[in-house]
Design a protein around this nucleic acid. Sequence first.
RNA 1: GGCGCCAUAGCCAAGCGGUAAGGCGUGGGUCUGCAAAACCCUGAUUCCCCGGUUCAAAUCCGGGUGGCGCCUCCA
Length: 461
Amino acid sequence: MKIYNSLTRRKEEFVPLEAGKVRMYACGITVSGEAHIGHAYQAIVYDMFRKFLQKQGYRVTYARNYTDVDDKIIARAKEANVPADEYAAEMIANINAVMRRAEIDEPDLWLKATENIGNIISFIAELIEKGHAYPAENGDVYFDVDSCPAYGQLSGRSADESLDGVRVENDEAKKNAYDFALWKAAKEGEIFWESPWGRGRPGWHIECSAMNRAAFGDQIDIHGGGRDLIFPHHENEIAQSESLTGKRFSKYWTHNGLIKVNGQKMSKSLGNSLLLSDLLDRYSPDALKFALLSNNYRGDLNVTDTLFPEAEAHIAKFYSVIAEAEKAFPDERGTEAEIDKKFDADMSDDFNTALALSDLFGYFKEAAKLLAEKNPRARRITNQIRKTYALLGLFQKNAEEYLAKYAPKEEIPAEVLSLAEERKRARAEKNWAKSDELREKIKELGYAVKDSKDGYELSKL
RNA sequence: GGCGCCAUAGCCAAGCGGUAAGGCGUGGGUCUGCAAAACCCUGAUUCCCCGGUUCAAAUCCGGGUGGCGCCUCCA
């Protein structure tokens, strides 16, 4: 199968470092706020990577991290007047709960910065020993970017270029302005850990390098994250890890696109985030996943007003075909291998979920047609869809229950019902004038009446 | 300013060297007393522009133009 590698900027045949095994790490969330749709997107994408790689026969170990100590967390905790570690723990519990609600599976390994302080300190100590880092007068420890000639390979910028336009912090303490902090000295009242360089806490970039090494060793197969992390975060991870080990840190670098709202990226500083919990109040997890995976994971996804409602409508329609097929052929257990084959072919090309999902329209159309012909192949198709598309987290619910929950028939007031019954009688008598008059009355009460072959349907306007 | 990504019908979007998937919408039809729903049919001689490579390019290369992202925290 092929995977796009950000490092080489092309699709490459996927060959893991060790035959049959995949070590995959994805940069998770800095827990200074609630989970937004971008976090969910990233979690869905890497969960999908994991599951498809497993399907291809690999033994996958998939790790994600929580950055549970940083400047913003400390600031938020102070505002809330709780200790920083307590605040972080609460946020993690929160995020886990909403991810569960979104029916996103957890990684095999959860890594947390605060549980890896020892690993981080020894990583930094080794870097200092090898001449790639230095403690500064202010109690910080910095990475010496000049000691790493290959710096910039991922983002395509040189150290000098990366400086251009940068807001430089703690300039006086560093050898070079582009050096970045591995260890930050604690300010008065801040959370801290003891270290050979005094009390402090780890910088952001070093955690991922240190936790990866602790969990996987010197090298991993796939390192993922949002595209916004390419520079400086991933560039710095490479510098740290490769300076220390002399080996290529990650064989493949993958980056998911960003979610945008009105053409603009969601970001903490802009405060335009779509919270996952809010979306789950309005849409089903199936619909969210369908919408998110309908685009290539590498591209940005602009959330428009129609994106989620349209996805919800598609999913409801699909589930209604499933419900009918299962009702019509309750004992049919057969499947359709071709559907699964096509899915694997789509996904083998850099996880082309957009193509795999577009196939669904054809399958359900066919199933609906077969259903009308009372052909049990309809059920074989829906059986296979349930089986195959489980990999994307779709169609795992009881169809009737899904429809009742997400496409519910509204409660109709008795007054409206009796008017509709009266209209039905009028229609039976072919009294069209009265029929139209009654339809108008029903409309005034806020309902639309639509005739179907054996009666009528009422819906709220 | 530097670096990177992207540019396909009204909109969303797949396609990654062999002659333009899919969805939404539009228009037409079947059905219907009318309407709705459902179903069928309907779209780009062409993929931002200009060059180049090739028997062959939306797809590769060079140069423009435009949008976005990163260079502060970010998935």
